[in-house]
């Protein structure tokens, strides 16, 4: 029998505050293959970050199980590196030292020279080597996000978890970074789970788009397979029927069947 790389089976999450319990996620089952790029999309507050944190092991599941290569996920670890919604670089460390902190810990057995190569390699990959001695406060939002990605990649995670990595960026920077991430995914063939709000971003980057219903007790509403070969070129895509089909499917799901209730 074929075993999946990352498996979520009947995962649920409830938060307890005093006597109230809020059920945020219910019965989520999903399998992700090695090397796959999966996007999670859903309205704000439906529980996307919560789901990502469950996979990361940062919060424990209330129900069900998360398996990565047949091992239970019950604590955070560098094999599931996260790029957080707001970059979360440490402001007192330089770009280089931010990555070094992770590399020194994850690759503690290697020599200092080998670790340095790792750091520079990943900085080159996101084209940030020129700013290695700058502090996070001295670089732009897009650059910070790139450093965050480099830090996560430097751990060589089994699954790279991205929580709206481009959410806070302007359209141009965002497009540029999307292309970079696509490129990196092509080069490293790594497994990625990405949260997004952006339909075009989801279709551009993903093999599959997982759509969550509105909370409370959000679950998977529908999954769209994007059958487009990589590398994808954003300009050429626009006119392709498969692209239009996927885009429509996601838009329909989000704006017709699962309207953002509070906004109405």
């Amino acid at each position: 029998m074929h075993k999946s790389y990352l498996t979520l089976s009947h995962v649920g999450k409830s938060f307890q505050r005093g006597t109230n319990t809020t059920e945020v996620l219910r019965d989520i089952s999903l399998t992700v293959e090695r090397g796959e790029y999966v996007s999670l999309i859903g309205h704000s507050g439906c529980g996307k970050s919560t789901l990502l944190n469950l996979i990361a092991g940062l919060t424990p599941v209330s129900n069900g199980t998360v398996l990565l290569e047949d091992k239970h996920v019950n604590a955070p670890g560098p094999d599931r590196a996260v790029v957080f919604q707001n970059h979360s670089l440490l402001p007192w460390l330089s770009v280089y030292d931010n990555i070094k902190l992770a590399v020194d810990k994850v690759w503690a057995k290697e020599s200092a020279a080998q670790r340095k190569v790792r750091i520079m390699e990943k900085l080159d990959l996101v084209q940030m080597a020129h700013a290695k001695d700058k502090r996070p406060s001295e670089i732009s939002g897009g650059m910070k996000q790139r450093v965050g990605i480099a830090r996560a990649l430097a751990m060589e995670p089994k699954v790279l978890l991205l929580d709206e990595p481009f959410g806070a960026l302007d359209a141009l920077t965002r497009a540029h970074l999307q292309d970079q991430v696509m490129q990196i995914h092509q080069t490293l063939k790594n497994t990625v789970v990405m949260i997004t709000h952006d339909v075009d971003e989801a279709v551009l980057l993903s093999d599959r788009i997982v759509m969550l219903t509105n909370g409370p007790a959000a679950t998977i509403g529908e999954i769209v397979n994007v059958n487009l070969p990589y590398p994808r070129k954003r300009i050429e895509l626009v006119s392709q029927p498969e692209y239009i089909r996927c885009r429509e499917a996601v838009l329909k799901f989000l704006y017709e069947r699962h309207k953002f209730v509070e906004a109405a």
């Binding site: 940062l58 955070p76 670890g77 957080f84 979360s88 440490l90 460390l93 902190l101 810990k105 751990m155």
Partner: peptide
């Protein structure tokens, strides 16, 4: 966020104290 970073890279309590908490 800083705590989560520390947890993902699995800093031990002493490293957490000196590398995250104090700065």
């Amino acid at each position: 966020d800083y705590k989560n970073v520390a947890r993902v890279i699995q800093l031990n309590p002493i490293q957490y104290f000196s590398k995250i908490m104090v700065p």
